[in-house]
Amino acid sequence: MVWQTVKGSYDDNDVQFLLQEVVNPVEKLSTIEREEKIQSGTHYSMMLPIESEPTAQYMEIYHTLLRENADKMALYTGVLAEQIWRKHQNKEWVIVSLARAGTPIGILVKRYIQFAYQADVPHYTISILRGRGIDEVALDYIAQQNPGKSIQFVDGWTGKGAISKELIQACRQYNKRTDHHISADLAVLADPGYCAAIFGTRQDLVIPSACLNSTVSGLVSRTLLNEKLMDTTGFHGAKTYEHLKHMDESQEFITAIVQFFPVQQKQVEKQLEIVLRENHELSWLGAKDVAILQQQYGISKSEFVKPGVGETTRVLLRRVPWKIVVNRQATIDLSHIYHLAQEKNIPIEYNDDMIYSCCGLIKDVTT
C-alpha cells in the first residue's frame, strides 16, 4: 500500500519526511481540554494542539533571538556535526532526525557536513512517541532504501531524558525483532540533561526553533498515532498546516544559521577539542534535578516537570502551565519565556540551584 507522505516546506534535498499525511479531520481541542485528556490517560499522540498564529510582538522576540543566537547555533552545529562525521566517516550512513524538534537540527547537521566535507548524507525524519515507541515501519523503509548503512539519530535538545530512554528501549526491541544492529546513540545540539551520547554543548541553549511550532518545523504538526484517523500499518502520521504558510519561517531559520558556518569554522575546531575532553557517559543529571524540584513543589508526577528552555517554551505554547521556575544565574536570554508567562498570566519563581536555565511546571487539572 502507498501512503501519502508529508512533504513539508523544507527543500526536498534537505529532508525526507517519513510521516503519513493525515487527511482525516483531527478534532480541535482547546489547550485545557487537551490537557484534561492527557492527564486522564489519553496519549498525546491521539490528538493535536491548536496552533494559532504567533502575535507580532512574539515574532519580534523570535527574530531577535534568532539574530542574537544564530552564530552560536552555527558553532554548536559544527561541533555536533564534526563528532558525528568522525564516528561515521569510514562507513556509509544516514541521518535520522526525530520529529519534530530534531528535523531542523538534522538539516543543519546535513548542511554543515556538505559545507565542511562536500559529502551529501541522506536525511530522514521519523516519529518517536514517549510510551509508544519509534516508528518501525519507517525504520524498515530506511533499511530497505539504505542496505548496510548505519543510522545516526538526531534531536534538538534533552530535558530529563524521556526520549533518550525511549530510543534506547525502541532500538533494543527493533534489533531483536529484525536482527539489525541500530545504535541508540543520540546526537543533540544541546544536552543540559546529560542524557545524550553526542552533543554540541551541555549549556541550556536557547534554540530559536523551540520558540515556534510548525512555522519553524516545515509547517508539520506534532506526530500522530491514532487508528481512528489513519492507517496505522503505515508511517506514524502528521498534518501539514497550510493555513500558516504565510508565517512560515522554516527555510529562513536554516539560512540564518548556515550563513555563519564559514565564520565559525575555526572556532568549531577549538570548541570541539573542549567537548571531546568531556565525559560523554550518560549520567542523567537532569533527571536528578527534576526529582529535587518534584519534592520542593510537592508534584506527584515527574511528567509535570519540564526542564530546560526548550521544554519550558513547549509548556507555555501548548500545555497548561502552573508555574515557571527560572535560574537567575543563567546567562541566556529568556525574554520569550517572560513574554509568554506574562501573556498567559503564569507566575515566575526563582531557583538558582538548578542546572537548567528554567523549568516549566504543568498544572494538575484533575484535582
Rank of each mutant, 00 (worst) to 15 (best):
A190W: 03
P25T: 11
S127A: 14
I134Y: 04
N327L: 05
V290E: 01
D231N: 15
N175E: 09
I128G: 03
A341R: 05
K72H: 14
I61C: 02
E349K: 01
S221M: 03
V121K: 05
Y44W: 12
I198S: 03
S335D: 09
S357H: 09
Y338F: 05
E303T: 01
T201W: 07
S302E: 01
I168Q: 13
G148T: 12
H339T: 02
A238F: 09
F153P: 10
I105H: 01
Y10S: 00
S221L: 04
M247D: 15
L244W: 13
G8H: 04
S209E: 06
P54N: 10
S209F: 03
E343G: 03
S335R: 15
S52M: 08
V220T: 15
E343T: 14
N175D: 11
D248F: 08
V220S: 11
S209A: 12
V268P: 09
Y62W: 10
L219G: 06
R111T: 09
A56H: 00
E51W: 04
G308F: 03
Y10F: 10
D353I: 05
L334G: 06
E273S: 14
N279G: 07
Q294E: 07
Y141D: 13
G41M: 03
G106T: 05
K28M: 13
P54I: 07
I168R: 05
K288C: 00
H181T: 14
I274P: 11
T313D: 11
I50Y: 12
I168L: 12
L340E: 12
G360K: 07
D140W: 10
I151P: 04
F235K: 08
I84H: 10
E92D: 07
